[in-house]
Computed example of a mutant assay.
Amino acid sequence: MLKTGLLEQMISEVLLMQMARDKQIDVREQLKISIDNIKKANNLESDEDLKLALARDGQNYEAWVKAFSENLMRQAVIYSEVDRQIVIDDAESMAYYKAHLDQFTDPPEYKLRAIVLPLEDADEAGLEAQRKDISDKLRGGADFNALAGEYNQGGLKDSQGSLGSVKKAELDPALAQAADALKAGDVSAWLKGKNAWYLLKLEERTDSRVKPYSEAKKDAENKLYTEKKIKAVDKFFNELKAKNYIKIVRPDPLGN
């Protein structure tokens, strides 16, 4: 038995194709342009090359073109019956922006350096001695960057521990909490992560910022458009199904 979601999708596709044929929607030119773009993107010089590429993937060229064409026809119906009917004015966009300020807020960002001591293949006593040695050198006036170049490994060694600018959400929660408590130039206490010990230095902080409406307007319009389209598509399909008689024929397993 077909799952409800798959059955609903199949019914919707049949109804869209029926409407596309009723409206005599012609997508031949769009189909040609789309196929040419696919050939260009995949460095295929001819239809024969495309046929061979599809055959290698186990697909029949004619069936693929037919399915592609029908998909374009269904999209054309959605565009005509739904997309073109959606209108967003400035008042709606502004109201959406004000109601969803969290979506238009740049998160805090930190410019960090770190000294990282991996836990793998290291004994705790040795790591403790390293941490103490580094902390003593910092208290004695040693340069953090120089120590990062000395104690780090790989790329962090070459960059003297530079992590660049990192958004708060991109950091491990414990590291983010530590960075949040630092002022520019401060060095954190040692932090133990899953795979390493970390010592952070905050070089620069950019606090969270709510984008002004003038800057967020396009994004607000796009988000509002998406919300409206989801509702409009649901309404369109419900009305389309209500107008059409749909009979689902289940095959007789006994062949009678």
Rank of each mutant, 00 (worst) to 15 (best):
G154I: 14
V65G: 04
A122G: 08
G126S: 09
E92S: 05
Y225T: 08
G140M: 05
A242N: 02
A148T: 03
D252L: 15
E204Q: 15
I88Q: 06
R84Y: 11
M10K: 13
A95T: 05
R209H: 15
V14A: 11
E221L: 07
K247H: 09
G154A: 10
E109H: 07
N238T: 01
A95W: 04
E8W: 00
E120F: 02
K157V: 01
D219Y: 01
L156H: 00
E150F: 04
D121V: 06
D207M: 04
A174E: 07
K137F: 03
K231L: 07
I78T: 05
E221V: 07
V210D: 02
G141D: 08
S80Q: 14
L101A: 09
D89L: 04
D90E: 14
V87Y: 11
L182D: 03
Y96H: 05
T206N: 10
L138H: 13
F68C: 03
E92Y: 11
D26V: 15
R56S: 11
N152G: 04
E81Y: 11
I35Y: 07
R21G: 04
S214H: 09
L240F: 05
V77T: 02
A181T: 14
N238Y: 00
Q103F: 12
L171M: 04
L72F: 03
N71R: 14
D172F: 01
F68G: 03
N42E: 15
D47T: 07
A63K: 12
A99T: 13
A220N: 01
R131W: 10
K167G: 05
K111H: 12
L199C: 07
P107V: 08
I33R: 09
E227T: 01
G255M: 07
P253Q: 13
E203C: 08
R84G: 14
I134N: 00
Q85Y: 09
A184L: 11
E81G: 10
D89Q: 03
I78W: 05
E239A: 01
D158Y: 04
L191Q: 12
E150A: 13
K168P: 02
I33K: 11
T105Y: 12
N195V: 09
Q160M: 05
Y61S: 06
Y61R: 06
Y198W: 15
R209L: 15
M17W: 03
K201E: 06
L171K: 01
L200D: 06
D219F: 01
A125K: 06
N238K: 01
L254I: 10
E128C: 05
P253H: 12
G141F: 06
D123F: 11
E221T: 04
I38H: 03
A178S: 14
E8Y: 02
Q30S: 13
I38V: 10
R209A: 12
G161R: 00
P108H: 09
I86N: 05
Y151W: 07
K132G: 10
D49Q: 10
D57F: 09
K167A: 10
I134L: 03
P212G: 12
K39P: 02
D89W: 08
A95L: 09
K98S: 08
L101Y: 03
L163A: 00
P212C: 11
L138M: 14
